[in-house]
Computed example of a mutant assay.
Amino acid sequence: MTLHRVALPTGALELTIDASDFPLEALMGFAARDNAKRGFLFLSKVLGKHWPVKPSLMTTIHETLAAAVPAMPGPLVFIAMAETAIGLGQGVFEAWLRAHPGQDALFLHTSRYRVGDAPIIEFQEAHSHAPRQFLHLPAGDAERALLMHARALVLVDDEASTGNTFQNLADACRTLNPGIERVHLATITNFMGADATAALSERFGLPVTLGASASGRYSFAPGQFTPSGGEAQRFDPDADRGANAGFGRYGLQRALETPEALASLLAAQIGPRENVLVLGTGEFMHASYLLGAALERHGADVVVQSTTRSPILTWGAVSATLSFPDNYGEGIANFLYNVRRGQYDHVFICHETAPNAALFQLAGELDARLFHFLTETHIEEVSEIPVR
């Protein structure tokens, strides 16, 4: 057991680690949120969101969490939490599929965007800067049947601190499908504490298990910090934000295809001592990990991370901050952390939305190339970036 006391600009954090599969400093750092609801962040160094991560390390985390999923009655439905844990959840699902070939399972991820005409169910992530979350009901008959006849849920997020969001999502799914019998929570860190973790089954009203790479408990005493108050969500049910249904919002029963042709093309253009950043955008994360992993197999020195809507102070585990408009057209600020212009020899930005001014601005800031993923393997490079 180890105790960490951290004085943040937003307050005082105390964290006790009871168990960890990895050295804590390799797993996470401490950061301060620009958020009145929660002033601290356990910033993951293995997630591929706010910190650059080797794809092979991300794979290790995916496989570790997938291996902790207990034997449960099927079909299983894996649901990843937007936006931070979408890539993590999809990676855990695909690692589980590799270990359990032929078993029925469905992957979905929540979203903060409405896509197409599929019905949605809404639940709350109360502590988030953008609290409204949506789960699309699969449009395909087979995927819809899996969701409606699932007997177990695997809910994936980067961390568990209260369990409230997990419970809200589980309750929404059980209203839709009362036949759900078991829930497993998969997280990189679980800081609810041993007593709260042991009480999950009673709280949820059915058997609940939890697998995490690190566990412990925390307390936070807010300070006098005044958040900037920037808006992080402007949901319009009639707006088409350019989000793609084909990467997990409508459900997948299989792993995404790796963009091998693009990886081979790009690998041939990378010098032996050059470094590479593959950058996902917002909720579009897993495709960038797959491209990064393919480049790593080609021998490239590559890391993966993503842009985000989460406002975090430049302090602690955040050494650099870049702000730019969001490419989904909500008109809110988006951010990229721990990346500076000129830090990488190559930056490849992966996006699901059509090319737009926000993407051109981000690409110009990083001297990056834009790759528009229309499908897993139909990828178009945006060759014309306006000169600013």
Rank of each mutant, 00 (worst) to 15 (best):
M1N: 07
H4V: 09
L8G: 06
L8H: 02
E14C: 15
T16C: 13
T16K: 09
F22H: 13
P23W: 08
A26W: 10
G29W: 03
F30N: 07
N35Y: 08
G39A: 11
F42I: 14
V53L: 03
E63G: 12
E63S: 12
L65T: 05
A67T: 08
P70V: 11
M72H: 05
P73A: 12
P73E: 03
G74Y: 06
A82L: 06
E83I: 13
Q90T: 10
W96E: 00
D104H: 14
Y113W: 08
R114Y: 03
V115D: 00
G116L: 00
A118H: 04
P119T: 09
E122H: 14
E122N: 14
P131V: 11
R144L: 05
L146P: 00
A150T: 13
V156T: 05
V156L: 07
D157R: 08
D158P: 11
G163W: 04
N164F: 10
N164E: 08
D171P: 10
N177S: 09
P178W: 03
G179C: 11
G179H: 09
I180N: 01
L185S: 02
T187C: 13
I188C: 07
M192V: 12
M192S: 05
G193W: 04
D195P: 05
S201N: 04
S201R: 08
V208C: 06
G211W: 06
Q224G: 15
F225I: 15
G230H: 10
R234W: 04
D236L: 09
G242M: 08
A245Y: 02
R254Y: 09
P259A: 02
L266F: 01
A267K: 02
N275H: 07
N275F: 04
L277M: 05
H286F: 07
L291E: 00
A293L: 13
A293D: 03
A300K: 04
A300C: 12
D301V: 13
D301I: 12
V304A: 02
T308Y: 02
P311T: 10
V318H: 06
V318C: 09
S319G: 15
P325C: 06
G329K: 03
I332G: 06
Y337D: 02
R340Q: 14
G342E: 01
Y344G: 07
I349K: 08
C350N: 01
T353H: 02
A354V: 14
Q361G: 14
Q361N: 12
L362F: 04
G364A: 07
D367A: 14
D367R: 14
A368D: 00
R369S: 08
R369G: 07
I379K: 04
P386W: 08
